[in-house]
Design a protein around this nucleic acid. Structure first.
Ligand SMILES: [Mn+2]
Ligand SMILES: [Mn+2]
Ligand SMILES: [Mn+2]
Ligand SMILES: [Mn+2]
Lengths: 222, 222
DNA sequence: AAAGAAATTTAGACAAGACTAAAATAATTT
DNA sequence: AAATTATTTTAGTCTTGTCTAAATTTCTTT
């Protein structure tokens, strides 16, 4: 049952899953960008993944995960997020560094160790950045939430999730105490694409429009 | 300063170090055997490692680590042994499984994580099988001890180290309570290459000659 | 000392995964 | 609708690390 997949294949499937969850089409260029390889390299890997029935591909039209491919992607994402949380909880790795470490560890985690870590953490459902952890059976809850950048001023919101890709942003947010589950008020959106001002723990902080795209929130139930 | 070395190179250097510590010469065939690759593959990697000045090589005469190569080997062995101990202590992985896991994790451990694990464990000096953990500076204590198979009957000995390579042996030894630091008496050596009988916690157990080569002991001070 | 056996190296091939440059196709402007 | 631009694919090359088969060197026997 267990096929041995290369780290490269695992990273491609994960990237395709991630692009699928935010973009309409999963284009060669999007994957090229995300994985830091040339478009030509993406095309050749796409061919291989198609042959293995892990994705479908219409020439020039982008790719799509098959159920088998999606299952593997979620397996790797589960590893990634469990490891992130484990590193933070068990070894005190700061939340802006866990992503980078997990990027390597996700590929060498045995099923046995996955279970031990899961148990140690008390079967958690979200990682340190608020992203949901896929279940062992290859399913994952999808939540409904808004990007901070789209929220109207004067709204009380609760942070749901923060992108884990930019360590510098994470350090800034950690510095002002903005984590998943934090409640805050959107005070104003400065004109001319200026920052969004939020208030938490009695102080006001600016958050750039671009950063605010990567902070997901839900309206606080008052 | 930090060169990025492939997992393969790291495994070769580690294997060379390990063969060096037990055999006179580090032969192509010994490495081939240990790494599970063909002799021809060893020769070609040996050429590469020589060019990088990590080993010296006299044609048909075996290889030797340079100081630079030895330092890297010990770095990997340090990772390996810290991870083994960590998995056992922090996640309860049984001692017969830690080696297999560590074989993969040793290559993806950052210096930061290495330090965190070291600290968590209280700066340990031996791994679960009793092998010394190299220090950060690339040095390691070498101990003087005897293989159990060479000990005369009627001697009280203390277990120093057990080979981590055979899970089945480790399970057997764990089952009879034979771990590093355990004291036991060598009762007899059965004739015709028969087993060695040891006594611990009041009971006698047989240990095959071959297994006894991989159990290192010292005379108990008493 | 020579022959035979064993170990090592060379030669040549292959698979994975990347790259660049050029060709093909699709999307956008004019 | 044609021309221009952008995206994607193809073609061909490279590196890493492996393999098998053949040649070379060393070791062991006689
Ligand atoms: Mn990865
Ligand atoms: Mn995360
Ligand atoms: Mn290894
Ligand atoms: Mn060990």
């Amino acid at each position: 049952m267990e096929k041995m997949l290369s780290q490269s294949i695992e990273d491609y499937l994960k990237a395709i899953y991630e692009v699928e969850s935010s973009e309409e089409k999963v284009s060669t260029s999007a994957l090229s960008e995300k994985l830091g390889v040339s478009p030509a390299s993406v095309t050749s890997m796409v061919k291989k993944l198609s042959e293995r029935k892990l994705i479908t591909h219409k020439r020039y039209q982008g790719v799509k995960l098959t159920p088998a491919g999606r299952k593997i992607a979620l397996e790797i994402i589960r590893h990634h997020r469990l490891v992130e949380l484990y590193l933070k909880e068990a070894l005190g790795v700061p939340w802006d560094q866990v992503h980078q470490e997990a990027e390597k560890w996700e590929h060498v985690l045995s099923e046995d160790l996955e279970d031990r870590i899961d148990k140690f953490l008390g079967y958690p459902v979200t990682d340190p950045h608020g992203s949901p952890i896929p279940r062992r059976d290859g399913t994952m809850i999808v939540r409904q939430c808004d990007a901070l950048v789209d929220v109207e001023p004067d709204t009380l919101v609760k942070v749901v999730e923060v992108s884990d890709h930019d360590p510098e942003l994470l350090r800034y947010l950690g510095g002002i105490g903005l984590y998943p589950e934090t409640e805050m008020t959107v005070v104003s959106k400065q004109p001319f694409k200026g920052p969004i001002i939020v208030e938490l723990t009695g102080k006001e902080y600016p958050i750039g429009r671009n950063a605010a795209k990567y902070i997901l929130v839900e309206k606080a139930n008052n």
